[in-house]
Design a protein around this nucleic acid. Structure first.
Length: 479
RNA sequence: GGCGCGGUCGCCAAGUGGUAAGGCAAAGGUCUGCAAAACCUUUAUCGGCGGUUCGAUUCCGCCUCGCGCCUCCA
């Protein structure tokens, strides 16, 4: 197997990945802020994180992966207040929607899915530690982080501090700060706002402190991997580093991975441009979850992904090709024995697949390896050279592929129905289909093609595709 | 202005100092009662200009275009 290489934002280059403890990976990924439904741009990042965790697992690492749910911030407080709900009640709906969305995209549950509001105490304790080390100062009931005391500030995002200091936006927070670049660890409550009564005073946590506190609580002072979208590198991750390392004196995370953004039709996705999509928007238009997952994962994560409906359609066709191949493998009848060349081809494809993913998660390269094998095996089948003994090796390869990409299982219909989309009736059952297929075969034998075609048409209208194979066998699949 | 990502076939996209993977789409063909699936064939000189080199899409410089961050936005 190839050496795993990952692009580390901290180093500014691709590095060999070596976890602190052999065989184990401690990973923290920034999850959604649950003030609304997450959009496909968010899911680009979450799918990337999923590919990463799945690949690490495939390579045998024991994973401890924490993903946070930010369930307290300005928008949540404002929206909850407007809705006359508690923060918990307001966010619950979006938390559940997020879980549902993740299931639809086959995003695995991390080892820990945690909510910020469940860890206020841990944040307070971390702030107290920073207070003791005089990295903080109070101002109008809030507590700020004094960046001037952390000389390494900017090492992740390479921001030019002098530039920021000269910036005009000094007081957007409406609080007094010593320096423009200082950020709030703890925010004093505004009138009527929800707050927590704590040893450091009443208020609510600043945005960055939750990740530092929760990551270190679950994973220890030094994480192996920390990821998020590129926009989080500054200020969010930079501030996490400042908080955590000031408190512990140790490196906070060893590898920082940042996913590039998704564009829609070449433009930044935004509500004002009308190109803002949630998963529900797309599923409502009839697109399949597997197609979306494929589209989001086929472009390597460090490259901006231009999302288009044409592209989504292309992804659907690509998935279709792969599933057709898997069906052919499963249902086809091949001569007994093994073909020496084919075994070698499969092994080569598996190597190349692994090499692709090992190279900073080069999903495009990994996919090419899969499609190469599909074509080669199809050719062998057409020539009658593919043997029964090659089936299991090919299937194993596809299974390995799918452990990471997770698009092979034909369950889009179920997933859509689970989210309330698609037809409630689930189409004809297997026995009914088999019966109709048998009737059609009988008709075909009598060369009664009118009846045969009528049955095929009827089934097609009910979502069943029938294919006659060369050897006279018939296979069917649900559309 | 600073920092970062990127401009490769109609669309998506990989990649290398020695004349460019893969997917989708299109056209033609093989197979098929018809279809579907599959297969075959056809479709690029890599944003522009210089430089280094025997040779650059790949290295360097400049330019240009797109996008992002630098204001709690994945």
């Amino acid at each position: 197997m190839a050496e795993i290489q990952l692009h580390n934002t901290l180093a500014g280059k691709i590095e060999k990945f070596v976890p602190q403890k052999a065989g184990e990976v401690r990973m923290y990924t920034c999850g959604p802020t649950v003030y609304d439904y997450a959009h496909i741009g968010n899911y680009r990042t979450f799918v990337f994180q999923d590919i990463l965790r799945r690949f690490l697992k495939l390579r045998g690492f024991k994973l401890n992966h924490v993903m946070n749910l930010t369930d307290v911030d300005d928008r949540i407080i404002a929206n909850a207040a407007a809705a006359g709900k508690s923060i918990r009640d307001y966010t619950e709906k979006f938390v559940q929607a997020f879980f549902d969305d993740c299931r639809s995209l086959s995003i695995e549950a991390p080892e820990h899915w945690i909510r910020a509001t469940d860890h206020i105490d841990d944040m307070v304790k971390l702030i107290e530690r920073l207070q003791q080390k005089t990295f903080t100062y109070p101002s109008e009931g809030s507590i700020y982080y004094r960046i001037a005391k952390f000389p390494e500030y900017g090492k992740l995002s390479k921001v030019d501090l002098t530039g920021i200091q000269a910036g005009a936006r000094v007081d957007n927070d409406r609080y007094e700060k010593e320096s423009a670049r200082d950020f709030a660890l703890w925010k004093a409550p505004k009138p009527g706002e929800h707050f927590w009564e704590t040893p450091i005073g009443p208020g609510r946590p600043g945005w960055h402190i939750e990740c530092s506190a929760m990551a270190m609580k679950f994973l220890g002072d030094t994480l192996d991997i920390h990821t998020g979208g590129v926009d989080l590198a500054f200020p969010h991750h930079e501030n996490e580093i400042a908080q955590s390392e000031a408190a512990t004196g140790k490196p906070f995370a060893r590898y920082w991975l940042h996913a590039e953004h998704l564009l829609v039709e070449g433009e930044k996705m935004s509500k004002s441009l009308g190109n803002f999509y949630t998963l529900r928007d797309l599923f409502g238009k009839g697109y399949k979850p597997s197609a979306l997952r494929f589209a989001l994962s086929s472009v390597p994560y460090r490259k901006q992904l231009n999302f288009t409906f044409d592209g989504l359609q292309q992804a659907a066709s690509s998935v279709e090709r792969l599933r057709n191949f898997a069906d052919r493998l499963k249902q086809g009848k091949f001569p007994a024995g093994k073909q020496k060349g084919m075994a070698a081809r499969i092994a080569k494809a598996a190597d190349e697949f692994d090499a692709g993913l090992s190279e900073d998660l080069n999903t495009a390269r990994a996919l090419a390896a899969v499609f190469d094998l599909v074509r080669e095996a199809n050719i062998a089948m057409d020539k009658g050279e593919f043997r029964q003994g090659d089936v299991s090796a090919a299937q194993e390869f596809l299974a390995t592929f799918d452990k990471v990409f997770a698009v092979m299982e034909d369950n889009d219909g179920e997933k859509l129905r689970a989210l309330g989309f698609g037809r409630p009736e689930s189409g004809p059952g297997d026995t009914e289909i088999d019966k109709l297929v048998a009737e059609r075969n009988a008709a075909k034998k009598k060369r009664d093609f009118v009846t045969a075609d009528r049955i095929r048409k009827e089934l097609a209208d009910r979502g069943i595709i029938i294919e006659d194979a060369k050897d006279g066998s018939v296979r069917w699949k649900r559309k």
